[in-house]
C-alpha cells in the first residue's frame, strides 16, 4: 500500500529516505555488470506481475510479490523495487515523491528479510517443502509490509492508530493470495530452472 505526500511527519519521511538510500547502496554493491541485465529484467517482470489482478471473493487484489523479489534478488531487491516505485509514481501517479523513501523501505525491507530468512530453507529439502517455505515467505513479506506501513503511520501520530488496524485487516486476504501464488511460482521455478535456488546459485 502506498503512502502519499503530506501524510507522514518529517522525521518519518527523512528516516525512510535515509534507510532506503542505505538499502539501495547495499543492493547496488551486489550488482556487477554481469548481473545488471538479470536484475533489470526481473525488476521489469515484477513491475508487470504487480499489475496482475487476482480474484478473491467478490473483489480482487493486485500482486506485490516483494517476497519473491527478495528470494530472487537479495539486497538488489532494494534498487529494483525502488525503480518500480519511481516509474509508478511518475507515470501512473501512485504514491508520492517525498514519500518514495518510506514507500520503498516498507516494500523492499520485507523483501530482503524474506530472502535472508527463507532463502536457505527453500534451497535445502525437497521441491515441495521448498514451495511450502516459499509460501510462508511470501505471506511473511506482506505481513511485514503491513507492519512497516502501520509503523510509519503510528510514528507520525496517534490519530492514525485506527487506520493502522484497518491496514492490517485489509492485508490479510493479500497475504493469503501472495503466499499461495509465491509457493506455486517457486515450485515451477525450481522444476524449470533449479540452479536459481541452488545454494550459491546465480542470485544477482
Amino acid at each position: 500500500m502506498h503512502i502519499v505526500d503530506g501524510a507522514l511527519s518529517s522525521p518519518v519521511v527523512i528516516a525512510g529516505a535515509v534507510a532506503t538510500a542505505g538499502g539501495i547502496a547495499m543492493g547496488l554493491r551486489t550488482l556487477t555488470l554481469e548481473r545488471i541485465p538479470t536484475a533489470g529484467v526481473l525488476s521489469a517482470a515484477f513491475f508487470v506481475a504487480s499489475l496482475i489482478h487476482v480474484p478473491i471473493g467478490p473483489s480482487s487484489v493486485h500482486l506485490i510479490l516483494n517476497g519473491l523479489a527478495g528470494l530472487l534478488l537479495g539486497w538488489a531487491a532494494f534498487p529494483a523495487l525502488f525503480v518500480g516505485l519511481v516509474l509508478q509514481a511518475v507515470f501512473f501517479g501512485f504514491g508520492g515523491l517525498t514519500v518514495l523513501g518510506v514507500n520503498t523501505f516498507n516494500i523492499a525491507m520485507p523483501a530482503v528479510l524474506t530472502g535472508i530468512i527463507f532463502g536457505r530453507l527453500i534451497a535445502s529439502g525437497s521441491v515441495v517443502r521448498g514451495a511450502v517455505w516459499a509460501g510462508i515467505g511470501g505471506a511473511f513479506a506482506i505481513a511485514a509490509t503491513a507492519g512497516f506501513v502501520g509503523l510509519s503511520l503510528a510514528l507520525t501520530g496517534e490519530e492514525y492508530l485506527p487506520a493502522v488496524g484497518f491496514v492490517f485487516f485489509a492485508h490479510i486476504p493479500v497475504m493469503v493470495v501472495e503466499g499461495i501464488l509465491t509457493a506455486f511460482a517457486v515450485l515451477l521455478v525450481r522444476q524449470a530452472k533449479p540452479e536459481l535456488f541452488a545454494p550459491g546459485g546465480v542470485r544477482p
Binding site: G40, L42, I52, L181, T182, V189, L196
Partner: peptide, 24 residues
C-alpha cells in the same frame, strides 16, 4: 486459479532470466 496464476508468475520469471542471459 491460484495455482495457474502462480505458475504464470513463475514462468514469466524463468523466461525473464533466460532472456537476461541472452541480453548479456
Amino acid at each position: 486459479s491460484y495455482r495457474s496464476l502462480g505458475y504464470l508468475v513463475g514462468m514469466m520469471l524463468v523466461r525473464a532470466i533466460d532472456r537476461a542471459e541472452r541480453i548479456l
